[in-house]
Every structure is written in C-alpha cells, then in structure tokens.
C-alpha cells in the first residue's frame, strides 16, 4: 500500500496556509490546486506573469493570451493580476512567494535537488526551476519514492543539480520527510503513508534519515 497521486497532492495541500502565495510545478504538483481547503484563501502564481490563477476555461472560452507556465489554457479570478517576466521573477527571487511545490528526479539528504537534466540526453532546459528553489521561502518536493526500482532519495545526487541545499520537505507515495537547509545534513521521516512501514521506506531509500514520526 502507498499513497496515490491524489493522496500525495492532498498531503501537500496541508502545507498551504491562509494568505499564502504559492507556485505549483508541472505534473503531480498541479493536482494540489484541487485539494486547497475551503476555509483558506491561497493565490497561485504562474511564473509566465500572473497571480491569482483560475481554473481551466469552459470549452469554447479558451483564450490563447491566457496560459499558465505549462502552456495550458486557464482563466482569471477577481483577485488576478498580470505582470512581465521580470516582475514575476523579482517576486520569486525576492522571497515574496511563500511556497513552491515541484517535482524532482533526485533529492539528497542534505536538501540538494536535481530535476532538470540527465547527462547524455538532450536537456529541455531548467525553465524557472532554479529561480524558484533558490528564491521561494519554503520548497516542497512531491515525487514518487523510486524510479524504475531505483531510490530517488539519495546520499548525494548523481544528476546535475537544480539547487544546492534548497529542499525543506519531500512528500512521496510512501511518506513525508523534513530536511535542513543549513547545518546538519540529515533528513527526518515524519509521516508514513497508509499501510507503509519504516522498513518499507528503508528498503526503498538510499539517503540516511532519522525517524521522528508524529
């Protein structure tokens, strides 16, 4: 047993707080928007130049001038604003965004993150990922625990980094870990997914971690 993609997204949504400005990455992180608690107000930032991202449009109401960073058609809300790419990344790099939730290929126990290129393969580019992980106040990685049987939580990343010591939390299909950006480079397992044991996680993890289940 483990969490589904929806359960992972729902767990990540618990990190949202009332009044937060949040950037969601492409893939599973996009699903987090579906699990925002009804009693809090959260503004979603799209790094191509929008705050207050609305839902997908109704069929026939798509607007080519209104897309998110995944190039998907979206809509605006009564709280929305538009701005240039320079303004958008000033927001991100200047520490004004509270939370970034994004996917990863590997995370190391010291918080190093790799999610943009595999040597020998044509890299598509880092887009805004390096800016987000270095500038946003809290960085949460949402990813499968393993890829083709190989652990993605590593002692050290084997792939080129997106950022050095930038991850605060990792949520996988097996559980939740917290990490330290400074000082001691150990991570802590704080939650288990339904039906998962600590030894299941040990078997699927290369990184060293403490167990501090709440």
């Amino acid at each position: 047993m483990a969490w589904t993609r929806e359960q992972m997204a729902a767990r990540a949504a618990q990190e949202l707080r009332d009044g937060y400005y949040v950037n969601l990455g492409i893939g599973i992180p996009t699903l987090v928007a579906n699990f925002i608690a009804k009693d809090i107000s959260v503004q979603l930032q799209s790094e191509n130049g929008m705050l207050g991202m609305g839902p997908f449009p109704l069929e026939g109401e798509e607007d080519a001038d209104l897309i998110n960073a995944g190039k998907q058609t979206i809509t605006e809300l009564s709280s929305s604003s538009y701005f240039s790419s320079a303004e958008s990344f000033a927001m991100i790099r200047g520490g004004h965004i509270d939370l970034s939730i994004l996917g990863a290929m590997e995370v190391a126990q010291n918080g190093d993150l790799a999610n943009w290129m595999i040597p020998g393969k044509m890299a598509k580019g880092m887009g805004g990922a390096m800016d987000l992980v270095s500038g946003v106040n809290k960085v949460v990685v949402l990813m499968e625990h393993t890829a083709k049987g190989e652990p993605k939580l590593r002692r050290e990343c084997t792939l080129p980094l997106t950022g050095r010591r930038v991850v605060d939390m990792v949520i996988t299909d097996l559980g939740v870990f917290t990490l330290q950006r400074r000082g001691d480079a150990r991570m802590t397992l704080i939650e288990l997914a339904d039906g998962v044991t600590v030894s299941d996680i040990e078997n699927a993890t290369e990184a060293a971690f403490d167990v501090g289940l709440s």
């Binding site: 790419s85 990344f89 390096m130 800016d131 270095s134 500038g135």
Partner: peptide
Amino acid sequence: FTPQGTLAERIRAGGAGIPAFFTKTGVGTI
C-alpha cells in the same frame, strides 16, 4: 541555457544600463 528568472533579469539589467548583477539562482549548479 539561462534560468528563466536570470534571463529576465539579465534583459532588465541590460535595458537599465546595469552590466552585471549577483543572484543566488544557479549557485552550486553547472
């Protein structure tokens, strides 16, 4: 390849007569 925010800021800087600037983006990466 230039990180998107660094790209936007490099252009902003170029347009504002700023030859170079310092950023955290990309520290510790290639």
